[in-house]
């Protein structure tokens, strides 16, 4: 991958903790202290209860392959075919990602296979949370 061509995230006040976390090798989620609900993407309140009494937690990084496509279309910074996948985190939320250290084929990408987070440093500011097949 030519990292320089990818569209990189532009952190905002609501999401800065998430991108600070990935830079430090942590996958951060938020949890509502009143309902216990873990949610993503980040915001300053729980989208279920509306409560602002929330906390940042560190996710385990364990997930399963919930769904994906293998794109054959051109995209800046990507060499088709490449998979665009959805990791379902152990804590509940879903997250889009690429599947690294894995063939980009239907034979290698099996739904519900265990995944683990893999941090991909792009530059000093941005580290992307990617996922790879979990080690057995």
């Amino acid at each position: 991958m030519d990292n320089d061509q990818r569209e990189l995230p532009k952190p905002t006040p609501e999401t800065q903790h998430f991108w600070d976390g990935t830079r430090r090798g942590e996958l951060r989620l938020q949890r509502c202290k009143s309902t216990g609900e873990v949610y993503f993407p980040p915001r300053h309140f729980c989208p279920s209860s509306g409560s602002t009494d929330i906390e940042i937690i560190r996710a385990s990084g364990r997930a399963t392959l919930h769904s994906y496509v293998i794109s054959h279309l051109p995209a800046p910074g990507f060499t088709p075919p490449y998979a665009i996948a959805i990791a379902k985190l152990e804590e509940g939320p879903k997250m889009m990602c690429n599947i690294v250290e894995c063939e980009q084929t239907p034979e290698a990408l099996i739904l519900d296979m265990p995944l683990e987070v893999s941090f991909e440093k792009v530059n000093d500011e941005i580290t992307l949370p990617q996922f790879k097949p979990a080690e057995k």
Binding site: S71, L73, Y82, M96
Partner: peptide
């Protein structure tokens, strides 16, 4: 959110 949490992973046009 899409800018931060989807577009970096190579989504482009609707088929993706």
């Amino acid at each position: 959110f899409q800018q931060q949490f989807e577009r970096p992973f190579g989504v482009t046009r609707p088929p993706t």
